[in-house]
Design a protein around this nucleic acid. Structure first.
Lengths: 246, 246
DNA sequence: CGTTAGCTTGACACAACTCAATGTACGTGG
DNA sequence: CCACGTACATTGAGTTGTGTCAAGCTAACG
């Protein structure tokens, strides 16, 4: 991946005009899951593969919602802003995740690449046309959105009612669950986003995230290797901390 | 409505075995929206109308998710609990709203009637069967869930990044927007839920909600009539407070 | 008219924030 | 390859918004 532009405010690189959906390595966990060969070909026909460099803005909160996306590589952060700059992350996306839900044809959040990433882009209008002809696809989309809604409700509980330790512990656990399959050692979770991003996801400041991680480290519940990421040393304690059981 | 049982832990009254969906007064804003007569009849065939009294539990967070519901009268609160009893409301439902999204066949939250209410109940299995035959219905459901997701993201911003005044102001504004149509005077918003429910919705304590409302009253931005509900005196100021513009 | 449930108000405590300084890792250019 | 610069992470000291605990108030209902 060559693109390293940190300044662009929109999608930058567009690598291929046609997408080899048939060979897609994330198809089994993405929107494309459970489609027949023929259906996959139809979807492929309207999709475009994109590469974006770290820091590049993919969509903007109030832009017209013309496209939907599927992440195929890298990681993406979603967030909303208040007028004075306060920021709330609404989610982190990894390969297989879906992006572009809108209301009144406007995106509900902004999206930015945390690291160099690849996405699959679908024009909304064409995708909606496909949905009416491919019930499998619409059902798949309904399941994905329902799943996201359940996660959003968990996050509300976290934001509204959990303490700093409980928030950070919960966050680490969801990362373990998500990254569990892809990582060789299940106890070393990658952490591509910065402390400030984590803080804005958990409703905390950078400093509180840092202090909390340090405390967990002192308690030998986690380790923080210099190469980045977090090593989970005591998953059991972490689970209890996340639910406030102590 | 006669049922006033406050003790039942499950659905109590089941008034009619068949439901007159054709005459439903909330059909235009509910799940049933945009269905043909024939389709409406099919939906009607699998639905049951229920009445529940104030305080009655409709679903329980970890129960098997056998039914989906549509609210037709009254108001419902949705919430999640932590082991030690801390509670987070995930939403308040009014006529036309939808209820029963699940993950792994378990409900993601509990639901309880705030006041005497009526719901339309659909067995999940039968509804899913219908979905595959009625693409209109599936599309409608997708739109409703997507809409809910957008609202959930707004709520994350509120919970994670807004102050007490901003939270309460935002809450009042959403009530105005929701109840605007049904109420004669658009500036008197009904408030069927208690302070404690509002606190658990906004990630605050009862006391903070109360103090904040008192402050808004002192600033002549709202009035609190003894008959219940809240009167909005200065919508403009409220809008600014909600976004932190002062 | 007394009982009760919910709302309001007050005094104080503390978890997390703010502001500020220092430490660390990494990429760039000499 | 090393020195420097920049961005990010950590740590510390002091502040504050909201929570906690406790006391009164209000209104609805039997």
């Amino acid at each position: 991946m060559r693109s390293h532009s940190h300044t662009a405010s929109a999608v930058t690189t567009q690598s291929e005009a046609y997408s080899p959906c048939e060979n897609c390595n994330v198809a089994q966990m993405s929107l494309c899951h459970a489609l027949s060969c023929e259906e996959l070909r139809e979807l492929s026909a309207i999709s475009t593969s994109l590469e974006v460099g770290r820091g590049v803005t993919i969509i903007n909160e109030t832009d017209s919602a013309d496209y939907l996306f599927n992440v195929t590589a890298g990681s993406i952060k979603l967030f909303k802003l208040l007028p004075d700059g306060r920021r709330q992350m609404t989610g982190f996306l990894f390969p297989g995740d879906f992006l572009g839900i809108a209301m009144n044809d406007l995106y509900a959040y902004s999206a930015e690449a945390i690291e160099d990433s690849r996405l699959c882009r679908f024009p909304r209008e064409k995708l909606e046309g496909l949905l009416s002809r491919l019930p499998q696809l619409e059902n798949r989309l309904l399941n994905m959105v329902s799943h996201e809604l359940v996660l959003a409700q968990d996050q509300m509980l976290l934001l509204g009612r959990k303490t700093a330790v409980e928030k950070v512990s919960s966050f680490l656990i969801t990362l373990v669950k998500r990254g569990g399959e892809s990582s060789a050692d299940k106890h070393l979770v990658p952490l591509p986003m910065g402390r400030s991003d984590i803080g804005d996801y958990l409703g905390l400041t950078t400093e509180t995230v840092s202090r909390t991680l340090t405390n967990l480290k002192k308690q030998k519940i986690i380790a923080i290797p210099s190469g980045g990421g977090i090593e989970i040393l005591d998953q059991e304690s972490l689970n209890e901390l996340a639910e406030g059981l102590d």
